[in-house]
Computed example of a mutant assay.
Amino acid sequence: MEYRRLGASGLAVSEIAYGNWYNHHAPGCVAAALDAGVTTFHTAAAWDGGAAEAAFGAAFAGTRRDDLVLCTGVFWPEGPGPNDSGLSRKHVIASLEGSLRRLRTDYVDVYQLLRFDYKTPVAETFLALSDLVRQGKVRYVGTAEWTAEQLTQAAEAAARYDVPLISNQAHYSMLWRVAEAQVIPVSDRLGIGQFAAVPLAQGVLTGKYGNGAVPPGSRATGPAYARPLRYPELVDRVELLRGVADDAGLTMAQLALAWTLQHETVASAVVGASKPEQLTENAKAAGVRLDLDVLMRVDQLLGSFVQTDPRLVWTPPPGLVN
């Protein structure tokens, strides 16, 4: 495993991080991640009503806390009440207290604001975060899927209230490069690093849907998830990457993960897993450096399927949160 500093901070994160947003019931995945040198773990308060955080809390029993970089987040609904979602002072503080209980820890390393809250002043949110930082319950703060303009607002508020804002989690993959136009350049200027979310495009870039295959238990079989086989042209085009991966001595998943890590602003690629061996194999993408020829072949093969328009917004599939 290789490690990178997150943004302009001194915090080191593993190049491959494990997020349990979908398969938090998968046994053995945390142990496999730790064995592979993964130190950075992502979850959120709203994922499956808190069950995802609780699963991490149980799985980390016996692991030295200082060896972990725990990232959790707030924004999505956690209950039926009008104050059970968003980034108000009330919800940010209450949500964190619940997260700490479920994770069985006294603090989180990166507390992520999972979306921009148009109903709450940014200053209110960051004042609350400042209190949590001073109390020692939060070490650093991050955002997720914030636009360049919103990141600028966040940085100004962070400076005003002395909040260590160091990361943004952007949906970023070979197919979805929207962040490159505005978010990544602005983040560079502000000293904010990137967690690359959904780097395997919900499994599409692993090649497992090639030739019309739908593996049992894959996301394509679930009604809550986007079905990649609705787009056979895309699946066929991705299948052409198999030759590129073979030439590089990589699996298709490793190629996709290594591709995201070629961008120097990306500190870590966040992957999920339904089986421990998936984490073991995907962790091998850490430290891989791709030749320019490989990068050019990827661009040529994917062509018009690559999304770059900064006006595009990615949102989680229905059913991911409560």
Score class of each variant (00 low, 15 high):
Y172V: 02
Y209K: 00
G73K: 15
D66H: 12
I16K: 03
A256S: 11
D109E: 11
A12Q: 15
C29W: 04
T125L: 06
V306D: 05
L100F: 05
R297C: 04
A45F: 10
R115E: 03
R160T: 15
E264A: 14
G287S: 11
A55P: 07
D162M: 08
A44H: 05
G217C: 09
R5A: 13
L34K: 05
L241S: 03
S304D: 15
T206K: 06
Y225H: 15
H42P: 00
E180T: 06
L302T: 07
Y107C: 05
N168C: 11
E145L: 02
A258L: 02
L96C: 08
M174T: 08
V270E: 07
D188A: 13
P77C: 03
P199R: 04
G212D: 08
L103Y: 06
W76A: 14
F116T: 00
W259A: 08
K90V: 13
M1N: 09
N211K: 14
A220R: 03
D131N: 12
V110Q: 04
A157H: 01
G287Q: 10
A31N: 10
D48L: 08
R219F: 09
R189L: 13
S187L: 04
S14H: 04
E239I: 00
P77G: 01
A128M: 01
V141W: 00
L11Q: 10
E124Q: 11
H171M: 12
S95C: 14
H91C: 06
L68S: 09
L292W: 09
E180Y: 08
R242Q: 14
E97C: 10
P199Q: 06
S95W: 02
G191D: 10
G272N: 08
L302N: 10
A245W: 05
A51V: 04
L200G: 01
L132D: 07
V69T: 10
G191V: 08
G210I: 00
E156A: 13
T260C: 12
Q307W: 09
A245T: 01
V321P: 05
T72A: 06
A283C: 03
N83E: 15
G243R: 03
R134H: 14
